[in-house]
Amino acid sequence: MKKLTINEEIFLIAIWHLGEEAYGVNIRKKINELEGTNILFGTLYNTLDYLVKKGYVNTRKGEITPQRGGNNKVYYSLTEEGIKALQRARELQERLWEGIPEYAFRK
């Protein structure tokens, strides 16, 4: 099983957080919130596309709102695979940090 990159991890976590509301604009907002940086739509879609290809994420066509100029929303949701991958990532993280006290890297 391939390990998730930190970017993919952040994306999957953002999608999980948003649940039913996970579409482009919201995902980007969430990621910006989590990460504290501003990501481009270009990066957003490329990564989402990749996640879909990998099978971590499913897509579903959503409604059209006037603000969207007549375009569908596309909602993203985690697949079983995605959830498993997140779990593995979390386990890995926790295992990695186990036993390292918080003050270890303090100056």
């Binding site: 482009g24 604009v25 739509f41 879609y45 897509t59 709102t65 969207r68 007549g70 569908n72």
Partner: peptide
């Protein structure tokens, strides 16, 4: 845009733009 799904990005752009 490469696929139909990605046309939604135009919608996303537009929504953000409106906001």
């Amino acid at each position: 845009a490469r696929t139909d799904d990605e046309l939604s990005l135009i919608g996303d752009f537009e929504e953000e733009y409106n906001r």
